[in-house]
Amino acid sequence: MASSTRSPLTPSPVALIIGASSGIGEALAHRLAGDGYRLALVARRTDRLEQLAAALEAAAGPRLGPGCARVYAHDVTDYAAVPALFQKILAELGRLDVVVYNAGLLQPVGLDEYDFAKDRAMLEVNTLGALAWLNQAAQLFERQRAGHLVGISSVAGDRGRVGAPGYNTSKAALSTYLEALRNRLSRHGVHVLTVKPGFVRTEMLKTAARTFWVITPEQAAKDIAAAVRARRQVIYTPARWGLLMFVIRHIPSFVFRRLKF
């Protein structure tokens, strides 16, 4: 305890990552720990979380003190459990400065497939889970008049495409929700960041058909951490997706509905 450098004068900020067991969430945990954040890690797979926490403690523990990475088992579709868990995390970590909603689900569907179960599952994880968590965080941040809310949305939310109606919808809804939160909260000093990754080498990518411009989760995490510091509103990662999506967003419907992607 005495060896940690934390004191009231030099507190360490805290980041909560929902969906931290792999991919962008895991990479972001490493990145933020390196930047001096203590971490609350939320996911279903506690064995992976425990491993991650152990690695983070080993790397950052001497600087941030014991318990600098805490693990919370949770299924994001268990919405009713969120307020109590949020209360517990706030009490155990003492503060929250960054809340990242990273949990995401992509269920591939065929071009002529209409599967309500799959669509529902994606909306439950990608959208409703985000609403459950970020609604809590928004109320805290409004009262502390500070904080960063980060939603990992997707380039897929920018247009509805033939290949992924449910996934597109879930991410479009998340992006819109984040925009609304930004409009609600920026007047209270709260920063809301919408992250729109392209293809990132994660478990989700294994089900993707065609990929290009693939980046590692670490590269995405680096972009996200920089955007938090710079208080950016919306970022694409890698950044060139911004240009591509600008074009795609402006493809007129009579063309777009004839395309195969």
């Binding site: 009231p8 004068l9 003492g94 805290l140 009262r143």
Partner: peptide
Amino acid sequence: LPLDRLASLDNFGHSIKTV
């Protein structure tokens, strides 16, 4: 605990901020 009860509380010198 109701989130409405969350309040920003600090020290006399406003150098240590908590909720």
